[in-house]
Amino acid sequence: MNCRGKRTRVSPSFILFEFRNITGNPYVHIFGIGMPVLMTVVIAKVMALNLSDESVLSTVVTGIFLGMGAMIPLATILMGYAATYSQELEKGIPQRMELFGISQTMTIIHRIISELIFQICAFAIYFIVGFFILRIQPPMVSGLICYIICIGVLAVISFMLAHAIALFCKKFAIVYCISMMLYFCIMIASGMMGINYEMLPSSVQAISKLLPTTYITKDFADIWLGKEYNFMPMLQAYLFVGTFSGIILFFCLKRNGRKIA
């Protein structure tokens, strides 16, 4: 017999397959790239009407641009991936793949890699708009590296959360509702919807402090420009959300695992 056996290593062809799977969904392009670009341009142009000082305006626009960038992983992964994966679960596609020897773990690894590649493409477009249309300030190397790491980790956390929500609820309608609510709540609490962190009620601020997106929205201009910054609260927020997402993903995977002896 020449049985192919279980897939145990990362394969470029499967990453490409997952990447095609992401890009084959038109909503990801609309809400994941189109929306953040459009919203950032509109908000920045409105800001420009109210601020006359060029250097202040440039810093403010850079801050808005970097903060709004967090929308990309939230929209494409937290909302988009959760919805797509729940549809797949409804159709039994993950189980079908598992019967072909492609385990849940290997699927997750391939999907995280392909989602990160998609983030690179999406941010490339986003930054082209940022530099050429909004004229954002150029970063310090440390600022750019920090931004890449922060967005990358946010993308991975969003993936874990989205995968767990879909695995737990399974039904598209419920998953879409939960992920959409989470998406908007995170955006509001992080100050992305026009109300800054400082203007939020103290009870909401307590939640905002736990979200990495809050720090990306309110503080990243400073990091971008290489100014001194206390990373501890941001790091704590990442650790909190990352641990929370990791734990619920672990339990959802355990609950849905194959029961073969």
């Binding site: 397959f17 890009t23 084959g24 797949e88 159709k91 039994g92 596609i93 019967l99």
Partner: peptide, 11 residues
């Protein structure tokens, strides 16, 4: 080969 077999429709 299960009774119902579905695959992604994005490609």
């Amino acid at each position: 080969h299960m009774q119902f077999n579905e695959y992604t429709d994005t490609m």
